[in-house]
Amino acid sequence: MNNTIIKIEDLYYSYDNKTLAVNKLSTEIYEKEWVCILGHNGSGKSTLSKLIIGLLAPLKGIVEVNGKVLNEENVYDIRKDVGIVFQNPDNQFVGTTVLDDVAFGMENQQIEREEMKIRINKFLHKVKMEQFLDSEPHMLSGGQKQRVAIAGALALDSKILIFDESTSMLDPQGREDIINLIKELKSDGDKTIISITHDLSEAILADRIIVMKNGRVVKTGLPIDILQEEELLVDCGLDVPMTVKLSQKLKDANIIDKLYVKQEDLVNSLWEYNLRK
C-alpha cells in the first residue's frame, strides 16, 4: 500500500445546523490510487469533496492533505495539490474560449506566459481538444467542456484529481471519453484519482471503493468484493451489477461456484463449465 495522501478524521458538516451531511467521517486515501466514492444522491459524497478542497469548512474534525492539516492559512496551498472537476460542465467554464479557460487557473498561480503556452498545448492535446483552442463554450458538447476542465486541472499539475460526478450529466459518448481519460491518467501513474459517482460501471474500474451513506463511510474495499454485496448496495440506494445477479442464480444451480462482478470473468467461467461437461 502506498503512503496516505489524504487523511480525514472525525469530520462533521451540516448545511442547516439540523441534519449532518457529513457525520463523524474518517477515511484515508492513498497516493496514486484510483479510489471511487460510491453513494446515493444526498449521501454526502460531494460535500466530502468540497471539505477536502476547503470550499466548505467543517464543524469539527481534521482534513489532512499531502501532510498538511487544512486550515484558513494554507487552504490556497492545498488547492494547488487538488484539482476538481465538477458535475455540471456549464458551471465551471469560466473563460470565453477553450484557451482562456485552461489559462485561467494558471494565471491565478502566476505561471510564466511561455510556460503557460507549453502547458496549454500539452494538456489540450492530452484531452484531445487541441483543435478547439478558440472555440467558445456554447459551441462545445458537455463532454468536450468536461475535457477542457480536466485540461485546466492537469495544467496546474495537482497531485490529486477529484472527479465529482463529472460524467453524470453527459451522454454515453461523453461519458466514455471521460472514463477513458481517467483510465489513461491512472495508467500514466502519477496522479491520485478520486472519482465520485453512483455509476457502478465506473466504480468497477477503480482500485478501491469507499461506500457512503448518510454522511458516513459504511464500507471500503476492492470493487470485486464491494460490488457483490447486494444487501449493502441496495441499502445505500445503489444496485448490484447484472453479472452479480446472474451469477447468484447460476451458483444456486451449481453451474458456477462463486459470484462474478466483471462480465468477462462470468462468461469465461461459463465457457469453462461448458467445456468440462
Binding site: M242, L246, A253, N254, I255, L270, K277
Partner: peptide, 20 residues
Amino acid sequence: SVEDLSADIIMKIGGEQVAK
C-alpha cells in the same frame, strides 16, 4: 430478465451436468 436468462442458460448448458 436475469431470471429468464439464468433459466435459459441452465436449460441449454446445465442439463447434462445435473444428469451425471
